[in-house]
């Protein structure tokens, strides 16, 4: 039996410490807001899962219903909605994003762990873990 899409999205959010729902992919963002959000995460050298919401309009519908947030992109850290592009960019500029993600911006780049957080688990929604 198929897991309802909303449950799959909730599971993806729970299973990935940092997950970005976006238009397009980190390599090929299809929207300026998504592109800016990816750039902020990449500038902090953090590992994040990315979900392209474009292939199926139901992903966006179910995601927004779940998060009570109408726009894309949406960044979740440790299961909590951080915000969209505006909030992520504000927090990037103030240093709050680095703090939230545990990035030491004064020291050498944080070494990402070798093991994918979702390793061995299901890969719902074509989620890929990306290392910038």
């Amino acid at each position: 039996m198929d897991t309802p899409l909303r449950d799959q999205i909730a599971t993806a959010i729970a299973d990935n410490p940092t997950i970005l729902f976006m238009k397009g992919t980190p390599e090929q963002p299809m929207c300026g807001f998504s592109a800016r959000t990816v750039a902020a995460l990449q500038a902090l050298d953090v590992r994040f899962a990315a979900v392209d919401i474009l292939p199926d309009p139901r992903i966006r519908q179910e995601l927004s219903a779940l998060s009570n947030w109408p726009t894309i992109p949406q960044l979740f850290v440790d299961g909590e909605l951080v915000g969209g592009c505006d909030i992520v960019m504000e927090m990037y500029e103030t240093g709050e994003l680095a703090e939230l993600l545990g990035v030491d911006t004064d020291g050498p780049p944080v070494q990402a762990p070798e093991a994918s957080p979702a390793a061995g688990g299901p890969a719902p929604l074509s989620i890929e873990n990306r290392l910038s």
Binding site: S64, W69, P70, T71, I72, L81, V82, G83, I87
Partner: peptide, 18 residues
């Protein structure tokens, strides 16, 4: 917080956003 501030404004427009 930022999330709740933005929601207050988004909620004015409901489904028109997007």
């Amino acid at each position: 917080g930022r999330i709740d501030r933005h929601r207050l404004v988004y909620d004015i427009f409901g489904a028109e956003i997007g």
